[in-house]
Structure formats: structure tokens, C-alpha cells
Design a protein around this nucleic acid. Structure first.
Lengths: 339, 339
DNA sequence: CATCAGCTTGGAAACGTTTCCACTTAACGC
DNA sequence: GCGTTAAGTGGAAACGTTTCCAAGCTGATG
């Protein structure tokens, strides 16, 4: 590996290292002559400043860490994309970590981000407040929660208010005549898993729908658990006539399982999923979803993080969710039907 | 931000900085006594070594950069996931960059990775051999190409041999009676875009199918261009009866557009897409795809990069692709039909 | 003509590590 | 009991920057 330092540039330009540094970092206390010679030398040598040395001295890395639980989940892929683009606008590079829905990997990446001294961290956390997240708070590293939070850890957050969307979905299904709605829940170790579960139970109770515990199956936000849940739910003596799924990967799994059972969503069993993902609208029939704005969420998180980095204390934000009705849940229940 | 250095740890443990460093980095020349006291002190202070300082001195960052053209493309999301997991096994953290299918952003991230002195770079490149990719080669930074390559830049690569899969797809469609196959191509600024295009033309020619230039539309590997392409193709006087799409995001766009035209894939127009993505199998009818192994690709790329980092010169690898027939292309053409 | 302000410059310290080198101590073999 | 060796340790240099400080130069001011 060829290694070119600021000394080489200084020597070629015929000025001191100090002046070279000033020119390169845009310090105005430089002469036009020095500027042009340094720039020419840097270009000729293809000089790339060593970010480590720079950060070591200036305690700024111009990098933020983004930790998501699962990059393959289209919602988080979108989120990563919007966060990254928003950060880029403000001159921050994004280090993306994927916790793979596992606490040990989340801790590993958090330690890594701390060690790299990123200027701030945006995290969609999982687990309780133990482990490396404690170090982040303890060292007062600027950080914000996105999508999810952790109880007892006091960080600004941007989240979705799932209550409205879930209530709309339950009302909608109830209006079509469904009384037994199956709920494929997310893991109760995540705030979104818990909130959505609570919202569902509350909404179903308010509408006087069945609260049979067998109608609720807990998944892990990943596709495979969606399939398993469907097989469990549809094997009940009194199976649900509608399903509400707490995220889109589990919905993929669920829909696949329904098809393999020879059933059809929309007509045989109604289905509403969380997350407004492109392909859910393309399925036949298109799938009703509870949508929330990924773009806003990413942008707001970056803005909030910048505020924290600059010493501020932004208010947490809660974004609305709303139901988008499509054919997967548009057919009224046929009371004569039995399976 | 609270900042704790190795000096604090050394002081608390009652040993020198040198000994502390040795203990913390696993150097065996340490006494059991020193080890236990240093570890206790480090734990008590919640000490996290400064990765910048460490890398500055040791010229190793234990980080690799992964640059993909589009994280929202499920193929690259999967790839990011497998690369990251494979890297983690060998103790490397992955810095994921998203070029957003734009050369300027690719260059920006490459510069960033160079500046951060990552130990190596895995890149699915776009554009020609100009810009920052030159710096990578010039500085002899360990790097490998994944999925795509750049002509004239001599780096080891792991790619897909699309020829076999495309030939199978064309043969399959021809056997069903299709003579006019529309091809939604990727951008010719990418190696995969060019190769798949060439393979298609060759396969179609060999089978004696129409090579009408109007049947080929060039997209940009993103969803929107798939819709536009479909509208163009199906508006022809003699529209194609089958479509081959060069990647899955364009397939999303294409399928959406077909549905909005009131047509149905499989029966009204056959469709085969590249990339074996979960949800393509869930659509109704399920979509035939040309599959290639993401998992192998990620693992092999990491292994190759490790070889380069250790001074080796690995052989490039070409993975096979193969057709998976599903209902979207299983119906023989109806010769009596006209539109 | 001396003084002063303002601009530009270079030397050197500092950032937090790792690692070279030299040193002390203890154990060993003769 | 003496030299030899090995194990453990600490001081200090080094990594590549930024930034503090002091100083040189110019032109203007009194």
C-alpha cells in the first residue's frame, strides 16, 4: 500500500506542514500562492488525508453510525437509504451496522461505533437497556432512537404512533364482519412489538372482538416466523377469518404459507400488514397495509441527531400511521362459510 | 462526551501504559497479576480503546468497506447481509456505503473509505474506470469486485455468468411459442447491464427470434424505469408476447405497470425476471426467475478480499445462474390471440 | 522614522495508541 | 557463586494530523 502523507505534499509544494494543513482544511489564513501550490501538489500526489489522524487530533470524525435490526427488511433498507442521503447532505458519512435482530450483534456494532468515535449514533434498538447501549448513554455520546425505543433509556426518539393505524385496521375488519382476528405479533423484546400488541388488544377489546389468546401468536419480525404463525393459527378449531401482521417480512412468510395451504388471501382469509412496501401493493390481491412515512422518519432522525451533536436537546417526535385499504381485506365475511 | 484513555486505565491498575496496552491487545508477554488488574480497571472505567489512535499506530483498522449501488434493491440488501456476516466471523466490521446508482456518490464513498484506511474494499461498481476507483488501484488498497466489474481495472472479482441462465430463459420462452421477446435491459454503464444485454441478443439470435430493436428498452436498474419500459413496449404496433427483465426492481415496476394496464402476467404477457427474490415467488402468478447464489457470492468475496489483504492474488470466480420456471412464463402462447 | 496592526508562515506540541529498546529480576545450569 | 537466559516491565518514539504560539513581513499610521 502506497502511503502519502501531508509531509510529502508540503515538501512538493515547498511550504510547511502547518500551511499545508491550513490550505487543505480550508483555513482562511493562507495566501493565494500557497493555496494554489498546495492544491497542485495534493492533486499530483493523489493525496488522501488520513481520517484517523485527523479525527484523533480534532475529535470530529464527520461520521454517524446507523444501527438497524435487519437490512433485509425493506422497511429498514428504505430507512437506511433515507438516513444516509440526509446525512450526506450535511457532510456526514454513514456507517451502517446490521444487528440481525440479535442483541449480541447489536452490542458488537455499538462497541465498534464507540471505538470509532463516530460523532453520533442513530439506532433502532432491540433488547432491554443492558449491554453497550449503557456505554453510549454513560459516555454521553450523541444518540437518537429511530422507530423503536428502550424503556428506561432516556434518548430523543422518532417513532410511529401505531395506535391510530391499528385501530383503523381493526375497525375496518370488524365492519366487514370479522369477529375473530388473528394477530401475528412482533417480539415483545422490542418496543414496536409491545406497542403494536397492546394497541391491537385494546382496539379489539373496544370493538368487542374475540380476545381468545390462541388468536395471538408471537413471531420474531422475520419471514419464517410468519409462516409458522399462519400454520398454527389456521390449524385452530376455530381459526381466525382475518389476520393482522406486525411487519412486512412476517407478512411475506404468512402469505407464502397461506398459498401453500391452497388458500387465497382476501377471499379465504383477510390480511392486513404493517409497513407500506412496494411489492405488497403488487400482490394479487394487493395487500392492505398500515403505512408510516419512512422518508420523514429518516430525515427527522438526522436533524435530531445534529441538534444533539450541537449540544441541543430535541423533543421526541411521534409520526402518525394510517390504514391503506386494498383488496386483501375488502371482501365482507361470508357468514355461511365454514372450514 | 466523557473520554477515558489508556492512561486512566494504567493509573487505576497501577501499571505502565505499555503494560496496559499489552494486556488489552492480548500480547502474551504479561503477568497474570497485570492481566487481572488491567482487566478489572478497564471494566470499572468502561474503557473503549480509541480505534483511530490504534489504527494510526498499527495501520490496521479491522474494517472493510462494502459499496453497493442500491441498498433498496433486495439483491444488494441480501448481499450486504451475507458479506457483513462473513466479515464479522473474521473479525472485520463492515462499513456499508450506498452509491445510489450514481457515480458521484460512489466516488464520494470510495474517497471516504480510503481516508478511513479500511483494510480492504468490496465494491459492486458502476461507471467506467475513472474517478476514485483509480486511487484505490493506484494506492494498491486491497479490493475486489462483486457482482459487477469495470473493464480495464484489474481486480479479482466474483460475478455471475448470466449467459447460461439467460439462454435457458430464452430457450424456454421460445419453446412456448414466443417469437417476439421484449428485453428490459440494465444500464450499459454497468458490466452486468452490458453482459446480460449481449447474452440476450446472442441467445435470441441463435434461436432465430426477432431482433427488432424496438423490443429492447434500456432502464437504469430501478423500479420506475421498469414501468416506463413496459408502457413503451406494450404500446408497439407489434408488442412482445414475453418480457425478460434484467433485475428485480425493474421487474417490480414492470409488473405494476402491466397490472395498471389491466393485463395479467403469465396469461397476457409472459415474464421472467433476474434475481431470485422471496416475494417474486409469492406473486400471483409466481414469477419465473434467473437465480444466482447471493450467499456464495458474499462469502467468496470476503474470502478473496482476505487473501488479497494477506498479500495473495486470488483467481476471479464466476458463479453459475439458472432458470427457475414458475407460472408467470408457463403458459404456451395462444396463436389465435391478437391485441 | 519608529510603531503598530494585520496577514501569513513555520516550529512544535498534542491527540491516544502500539511497539522498540533497555532494564530489572528471578531462575537456571555449571 | 557466577554467568546466562527468560520473563516481565516502563520510558519514549512513532503514527499523521491540527492547532497553539511566536515570529517575520508588509504597509499604514502618528
Amino acid at each position: 500500500m502506497v502511503t502519502i502523507t501531508i509531509k510529502d505534499v508540503a515538501a512538493l509544494a515547498g511550504v510547511s506542514v502547518a500551511t499545508t494543513s491550513r490550505v487543505l482544511s480550508g483555513n482562511p489564513a493562507t495566501s493565494a500562492d500557497a493555496r494554489s501550490r498546495v492544491h497542485a501538489a495534493a492533486a499530483e500526489l493523489d493525496y488522501h488525508p488520513n481520517a484517523q489522524a485527523r479525527a484523533l487530533r480534532s475529535t470530529r470524525t464527520h461520521a454517524i453510525g446507523l444501527l438497524v435490526p435487519d437490512v433485509r427488511n425493506p422497511f429498514f433498507a428504505d430507512l437506511a437509504h433515507t438516513v444516509e442521503q440526509a446525512a450526506l447532505v450535511h457532510g456526514f458519512a454513514t456507517l451502517l451496522g446490521n444487528a440481525n435482530e440479535r442483541k449480541d450483534q447489536q452490542d458488537r456494532y455499538l462497541d465498534n461505533l464507540i471505538a470509532r468515535r463516530v460523532d453520533g449514533i442513530i439506532v433502532a434498538p432491540l433488547g432491554d437497556g443492558s449491554g453497550s447501549i449503557r456505554s453510549v448513554v454513560g459516555r454521553e455520546i450523541p444518540a437518537v432512537f429511530i422507530d423503536r425505543t428502550i424503556e428506561g433509556i432516556d434518548l430523543p426518539s422518532v417513532t410511529t404512533d401505531s395506535d391510530t393505524g391499528i385501530r383503523e385496521a381493526v375497525d375496518h375488519l370488524a365492519a366487514l364482519g370479522h369477529t375473530r382476528i388473528g394477530y401475528i405479533a412482533g417480539p415483545q423484546s422490542t418496543s414496536t412489538g409491545r406497542e403494536r400488541y397492546a394497541s391491537f388488544v385494546r382496539a379489539a377489546g373496544d370493538r368487542g372482538l374475540s380476545l381468545d389468546p390462541a388468536l395471538i401468536v408471537f413471531g420474531d419480525f422475520q419471514a419464517e416466523s410468519g409462516s409458522t404463525a399462519v400454520r398454527t393459527l389456521l390449524a385452530l378449531n376455530e381459526p381466525p377469518t382475518a389476520l393482522l401482521v406486525a411487519d412486512s417480512p412476517m407478512a411475506i412468510g404468512a402469505i407464502g404459507a397461506i398459498q401453500r395451504l391452497g388458500l387465497r388471501i382476501g377471499t379465504d382469509v383477510a390480511l392486513v400488514s404493517f409497513d407500506d412496501i412496494d411489492w405488497l401493493a403488487l400482490l394479487d390481491p394487493p395487500v392492505s397495509v398500515i403505512a408510516h412515512s419512512v422518508a420523514d422518519m429518516g430525515r427527522i432522525a438526522v436533524d435530531m441527531l445534529r441538534t444533539v451533536i450541537d449540544g441541543g436537546a430535541p423533543e421526541s417526535v411521534r409520526l402518525p400511521s394510517r390504514l391503506i385499504v386494498r383488496a386483501s381485506s375488502a371482501t365482507p365475511i361470508d357468514p355461511g362459510r365454514s372450514r
